[in-house]
Design a protein around this nucleic acid. Structure first.
Lengths: 343, 343
DNA sequence: ATTAGCACTCGTTGATCAAGAGTGCTAACA
DNA sequence: TGTTAGCACTCTTGATCAACGAGTGCTAAT
């Protein structure tokens, strides 16, 4: 168990290191306003904290650096009650500025978040558990081509082009759309793939040429795996962090960020509320020396999306957690207002 | 005027430097198979080439490095007639593998291009000079919200959500859509903004609430400025180039790449055919030490898009030019087939 | 329990030096 | 006259080393 004083010292050390990125020594700590002990005393405490695994040295006679365990303790116990930040108003302002589309709101939020923190922000669109198909439309562009448009009750629109075999009569196509609309209207998106497999496939086979591929594409549109869209902000902001002074690190970071699947994996399985994973706590290798903070937002009827910030383990946890809290609440509220009338 | 021998030496030096990224010395050149002169002779020629501005030294006793003028001459005169590359087949294969949508084709192409070269690829969607409005649809999601969908004759789909004032009757909305469709069908996209200003604005004012913003958004959709979409591939590939061993360089590169407007600016005003701009020939500051190679592709009736590769001035010009040639031709052809029937 | 003092450790910085790559120039050569 | 061998010179790179400073751990005094 940690004493009062150890708690204080640990907190001050981590705060200092988060700000300066330099190992912090006993003398520097003893000079802080709220510290009234001599450097020697601090040294003893630091040695103890190191024995307990909260601190580390970079070399035998260096100052101390928080270990992952240290950060973990800091996040769990030492972050003082969230106090108002100036930035909060920025976020509120952005969100309440009115928006006309989900995408807009999210993209903007991602950028603001990254600018406020200099970390990389990732926002995962809501998983559309309960989104329902509102309407399916097929617009023919010519005798041979058409575009299928799928509209959900939340205003999400997906579209795919495909070609029509020459044997087919446009009226047949129309008929098919009617049938599809009839059978699929109001069906939760998540159930569309089954519907396809069971009932619709045979129908499509009759009417569409190069059935295989058209089928695949339409299936992809309907599948709930696919339309989980990713919004990333400030990928280059993270380069401002001194941790990224190594080209090799930058490379591995960017090549991970180019792989959407991997990022989606990162955010998968995040629970409600704020969630912090530090360094090796992360499952994905590429970010084992980074920290990820996620927050979820709700979409009216329980659908969930995720906001996240990715930065060095030496992260401004306090600030980030506050911001994510505010943003997720604001987003939830704004989206609630926006969608509340949608069936 | 350059002598035969100087030409040969210049070419060999640039080829060597492009491959190795190291300043090349006289001894190394004299050892090449197709060179039968001694190092001393080469040195004399190199000094002359330097006097003429085709070569540079990194310091007083270093080997030579091509100057921008050198690269320019190399690109204009020394690139041997394009010979078949293995990679050509890769491209053909990708393109001819069939595609169902423009976006898919383009995104895939961008990735392949970047993978084949280890440079960053940028593809600018076609400017839709002659694209015509095929259909406009408004789907109501609820009493208060609706989504407008705009479909062009090329299968491009844009959509925007907006809110409906409570005073409006759905049938009125329907009426409005009918009117809009009536007036706008077949109108080239490029003319839509005027149409809006002149005729449609007053119409919308009657029917839509928060008219100002809805109007702005719909206008943005219709405007031809906006839908010039950008596809970027392999942003992290460029980090493999030894030129990018400096964190500051990487930062400036990435922050430019995050700014779509700036990239669009880069590619604006490119002419038909292949175009190479080297280093300071570029107008945009952020890439004054890079080279940009662009190629245009056609969309059936003369609409034009641009494919580009961005890399260090020490670029494999020969290979890149070949690839861009092939790809732009293949894209033009594929798009021609794809769109040929669209009205 | 705290702290002053001190010896010790280790990373950083800057100077020095040798090796190596490459040049420019001169003089000899075909 | 064009080409080449030879050599002195330049500059970068990498290694080595000493001085320095920040910081620690430990001991002894308060």
């Amino acid at each position: 168990m940690l004493t009062e004083r150890q708690l204080l010292i640990l907190q001050v050390i981590i705060d200092d290191f988060i700000e300066s990125a330099h190992p912090v020594g006993s003398r520097a700590i003893s000079k802080k306003e709220n510290i009234s002990y001599s450097a020697a005393t601090i040294r003893n405490e630091m040695a103890d904290l190191e024995d307990m695994g909260f601190l580390e040295k970079t070399h035998s006679s260096s100052g101390r650096v928080p270990s992952e365990k240290g950060y973990r303790y800091y996040v769990d116990h030492l972050i003082s009650p969230v106090r108002k930040q100036k930035n909060v108003n920025v976020i509120k302002h952005i969100i309440q500025d009115g928006f006309f589309e989900f995408e807009q709101l999210v993209q903007k939020s991602a950028e603001v978040l990254s600018d406020l923190t200099n970390y990389t922000s990732i926002i995962l669109g809501p998983e559309l558990f309960e989104t329902k198909l509102k309407q399916l439309q097929i617009v023919t562009l010519s005798d041979h081509t058409a575009v299928a448009i799928l509209i959900t009750n939340t205003g999400h629109v997906e579209h795919r082009s495909f070609s029509i075999p020459s044997e087919i009569d446009p009226s047949d196509l129309e008929k098919m759309v009617n049938i599809l609309n009839d059978r699929l209207h109001g069906i939760p998106i998540i159930h569309l793939p089954e519907m396809f497999n069971k009932e619709i496939a045979s129908l499509m086979k009759m009417y569409l040429s190069n059935y295989d591929k058209s089928y695949d594409y339409l299936r992809a549109v309907f599948s709930h795996e696919h339309p989980v869209k990713l919004y990333v902000g400030g990928k280059s902001n993270i380069l401002l962090q001194p941790e990224f002074n190594d080209v090799e690190k930058i490379r591995s970071f960017y090549s991970m960020m180019e792989n959407e699947d991997e990022i989606a994996n990162l955010l998968k399985g995040t629970t409600n509320g704020i969630n912090v994973t530090i360094g090796n706590e992360n499952q994905v290798d590429a970010i084992k020396d980074l920290s990820l903070i996620t927050a979820s937002y709700q979409l009216g009827d329980g659908q969930m999306g995720t906001i996240a910030l990715l930065g060095p383990t030496r992260m401004e946890y306090r600030k980030v957690i506050t911001l994510l809290n505010v943003l997720s609440n604001e987003m939830t509220e704004a989206l609630y207002k926006w969608y509340r009338n949608n069936e």
